[in-house]
Nucleic acid binder design. Structure first.
Length: 154
DNA sequence: GCCAACGTTGGC
DNA sequence: GCCAACGTTGGC
């Protein structure tokens, strides 16, 4: 395993799975990812100890943004929701196409760092999440951006 | 709820 | 392998 920690932004619709739910659960399986690029990040790059900006998407304008931090706490494994015949995500064409990792709650920020703030902040406006049409649900981010956000919000 | 952007599917 | 049709994402 590479000693170099990776940094990510992971999206979730809060009505589906929120940072508050992650805090309650402590850890959760980050499963159900059905995009090849995101899958490749999970399968090939993510490692234990990586830090994730937890991002709420598809909420009200003032509720969209980075809401906290999570940490990758498992190596990648075959997404059980892609092989469970009772799952709404059942994938019949392959038994091993999709992957998941476990993530643990680290921190919920006292305030959200909104998408609007990211776009308006010259330090952060380069982030993929701020670019129009961006749909990638797991995206690499720079360590400096994570530190910047964490230091500019409590 | 609208719709632009994007990824995927499938006919050719 | 091209590309039109379709479904989904996600900001507004």
């Amino acid at each position: 395993m590479s000693p170099v920690k990776n940094y990510w932004l992971i999206k979730s619709e809060p009505h589906t799975y929120s940072i508050d739910q992650l805090r309650i659960d402590g850890t959760t399986s980050w499963s159900g990812v059905r995009n090849y690029q995101a899958r490749n990040f999970i399968r090939d790059v993510m490692q234990v100890g990586d830090i994730c900006l937890f991002y709420h998407s598809s909420a009200g304008t003032d509720s969209i943004g980075v809401v906290g931090l999570a940490e990758v706490v498992s190596t990648p494994y075959i997404d059980p929701t892609s092989i469970d015949p009772h799952s709404p995500y059942v994938e019949l064409r392959s038994q091993v196409k999709w992957y998941a990792v476990d993530i643990a709650f680290k921190k919920k920020f006292k305030q959200i760092y909104t998408l609007k703030q990211i776009k308006n902040d010259p330090h952060l406006s380069h982030m993929k999440v701020a670019q129009a049409g961006n749909r990638l649900s797991i995206q690499p981010v720079a360590k400096a951006d994570v530190e910047y956000i964490a230091s500019h919000i409590k």
